[in-house]
Simulated assay, not measured.
Amino acid sequence: MQLSFLGKSYEASTPAVDAIATGETATFMGRPYARKQFTVAQRPQPADLTYRGIHYAR
């Protein structure tokens, strides 16, 4: 997804989310629903970072 902030364009990455059914049911506001366990893949961090025009590394 292409986004822009303060006139600079960048590519937004969306992490993959896996949902695994747990076999449990819960009730919310009187309605039952199946519970799931969610795992989110870690996003790679950029090697070079910039803050207010100053470049630094982790």
Rank of each mutant, 00 (worst) to 15 (best):
M1T: 13
M1D: 08
M1A: 02
Q2L: 10
Q2R: 06
L3E: 11
L3R: 07
L3P: 04
S4L: 00
S4H: 04
F5P: 06
F5S: 02
L6A: 06
L6H: 04
L6Q: 12
L6E: 10
G7M: 05
G7T: 06
G7K: 03
K8Y: 09
K8T: 11
K8F: 15
K8I: 11
K8V: 15
S9N: 15
S9Y: 04
Y10E: 00
Y10D: 01
E11C: 07
A12W: 09
A12N: 05
S13Q: 08
T14F: 05
P15N: 08
A16L: 14
V17P: 04
V17F: 08
V17S: 09
D18S: 08
D18A: 14
A19S: 06
A19Q: 06
A19V: 00
A19Y: 05
I20V: 13
T22E: 01
G23M: 07
G23Q: 12
G23V: 09
E24W: 08
T25C: 07
T25F: 11
A26Q: 10
A26R: 06
A26N: 12
F28E: 01
F28L: 02
F28V: 02
M29D: 07
G30C: 03
G30R: 00
R31D: 09
R31P: 06
R31W: 12
R31H: 14
P32N: 04
Y33T: 01
A34D: 12
A34P: 04
R35F: 06
R35V: 12
Q37C: 11
Q37L: 14
T39L: 09
V40F: 13
A41G: 15
A41V: 10
Q42F: 15
R43Y: 08
R43G: 11
R43Q: 15
R43C: 12
P44N: 05
Q45T: 00
Q45H: 06
P46E: 09
A47V: 00
A47G: 03
D48L: 13
D48P: 00
L49T: 11
T50G: 10
Y51R: 03
Y51G: 00
Y51S: 01
R52P: 02
R52W: 07
R52D: 09
R52E: 12
G53M: 13
I54T: 06
I54L: 11
H55R: 15
Y56K: 10
A57N: 05
R58K: 08
R58H: 03
R58V: 06
